[in-house]
Amino acid sequence: MSAEAELVPQLPRPEPDPMSLTPETPATGTLDPAQDPALNPEVADPVLTVERLSLWYGEKQALYDVSMKIPRHRITAFIGPSGCGKSTLLRCFNRMNDLVDGVRTEGSIDFEGGNIFDPRLEVNGLRKKIGMVFQKSNPFPKSVYENIAYGLRIHGVRSKSDLDEAVERSLRGAALWDEVKDRLGESALGMSGGQQQRLCIARAIAVEPEVILLDEPCSALDPIATARIEELMQELKDRYTLVIVTHNMQQASRVSDLTAFMYLGRMIEYGRTERLFLNPMRKQTEDYITGRFG
């Protein structure tokens, strides 16, 4: 654990990056991507390993040859302009794209020693291990309690005491317990937007996943609610691997350990967050983070 923490340091620690000393990095494509330092941060203990992933929505290609390693118990952020394929990539990890008609993929994503796209893989089990939080909070039209208990019930938890315990643990884990403990029986839809989003996080951690995918979880929230979620993410990363999509660069720089910049379905640059923001290796990355486009 500690060796790994060395490799991927926490954000607030400013530290000169050896790679930033080589500003003359060649442009994309001229290097073998597997060797390209702009795409290959050191990841000692990857949870998810994406290899040469391409994806088509019918005729339209949305991802081009993406490869990356997602480190365990870290926060990885995907940034990039709208429509560049961040959500598409994220939804590959729990195969939510299966729900869209006419999706085709090439390449592989390794998770726990197997390929996620393996047709023999039991997708419901995969989704239990790789949870997801959506852009727009989507609690079920049920009570707060039932929202959390739902995932547990479908995975076979029956006993009332187990459920009670898990509900409390999850709500505490999502820093929501003190706010809702007296209204567990009330409709989840009566809560504020920020509470709803934290409830969705609680719902995701209730089934004890390995990875939590967050697709722009704060884009509909006010700054205070956003801050609370960001705080929560820092607490969660001790136990879970987090992958977050955001098009808010400040958020990416605040919360994430690694950042991937995508553009037009391609992975342009992937590296430690402060390195990427302070010393981008690619011209496109620099243009994007300095606000010249996007």
């Binding site: 729990n94 939510m96 729900l99 419901n124 089990g125 995969l126 989704r127 239990k128 949870g131 997801m132 959506f134 727009k136 989507n138 609690p139 079920f140 039209p141 739902y150 995932g151 479908i154 995975h155 969705c200 719902r203 995701a204 089934v207």
Partner: peptide, 15 residues
């Protein structure tokens, strides 16, 4: 019933 509710359920591993 919004699509989001269905996706939320599927994302938890529900059939």
């Amino acid at each position: 019933v919004p699509r989001a509710a269905r996706e939320g359920s599927m994302a938890l591993g529900a059939t």
